[in-house]
């Protein structure tokens, strides 16, 4: 076995080490073998015999590999992977200017689904045709693209969120022919502030905003009035009770 075969065999079993860690092990073993061979050459050994003797002294590469692996428990590998993933995510977010809020919303939706809704969940929940009501916010038009009524089913996230209610209006708004980036940042934060009714409204989403509002069967419209990016915004949206199953 040559010195290169020896280090290759040790490294082949190191499955719990990251790439840089594996290369560090290779460099350390290479240096050790080199030192030992040089000492033997100084003693008058020829190169081939010096390498052979050194390999004998190094021991079984499989055993070295196995014992090295034990020093890198699985939890450390998982921790390293998690750290690398978070670092990569942070770098990606910085490069692409993705907002923290998006990550937070999706994590919240994953682990505390009773409080937050992802875009996909809400859109699937809507399952209806869009409306086309447009609301002026300064020079930008926001399109109210869906306003549907649904019955709150027991045991669902919505039932937890609105324990006293039976029906819910879901209103979806999206910017029209522009990006929400063009709106700038609202002093109150990213979500819309609904005057006087804030407790009743839940707004989630990013480029699309969602509102969940409890409604009574006799109500034919749902109205909103709020401040957005320094502008007064108000709209009234007809409710389509006929879409209820």
């Amino acid at each position: 076995m040559t010195r290169w075969e020896y280090t290759d065999r040790v490294l082949s079993g190191l499955r719990r080490l990251t790439g840089p860690e594996r290369e560090a092990v290779r460099a350390e073993l290479d240096a050790h073998i080199e030192d030992h061979i040089c000492d033997l050459l100084d003693l008058g050994y020829d190169e081939e015999l010096a390498e052979e003797r050194t390999m004998q002294r190094m021991g079984d590469p499989a055993e070295v590999s196995r014992e090295l692996n034990k020093q890198y428990p699985l939890r450390w590998m998982l921790l390293k992977w998690a750290t690398m993933a978070v670092t990569a995510a942070l770098a990606l977010m910085l490069l692409t200017q993705v907002e923290w809020g998006v990550v937070k919303e999706n994590l919240m939706a994953r682990f505390w689904p009773s409080r937050w809704y992802t875009y996909e969940e809400t859109y699937e929940f809507l399952d209806g045709d869009d409306t086309d009501i447009r609301v002026e916010i300064g020079t930008t038009t926001v399109r109210v693209c869906a306003a549907r009524v649904t019955e709150i089913q027991p045991g669902t996230n919505l039932a937890e969120l609105f324990p006293e209610e039976r029906y819910l209006a879901v209103v979806v708004t999206r910017p029209y022919r522009t990006s929400l980036w063009d709106l700038g940042w609202s002093p109150e934060g990213r979500f819309l502030t609904v005057s006087g009714q804030q407790d009743n409204w839940t707004a989630v989403g990013y480029q699309t905003w969602y509102y969940l509002l409890p409604v009574r069967p006799e109500e034919t419209t749902v109205a909103a009035s709020y401040q957005e990016h320094g502008y007064d915004v108000s709209f009234s949206i007809p409710l389509d009770w006929g879409a209820l199953p």
Binding site: R57, P61, V64
Partner: peptide
């Protein structure tokens, strides 16, 4: 006079 390669798991363990 230990098998020299087995020193490194010991060192890495001590470092850990």
């Amino acid at each position: 006079e230990m098998k020299e390669g087995t020193l490194y798991p010991v060192l890495h363990g001590l470092e850990k």
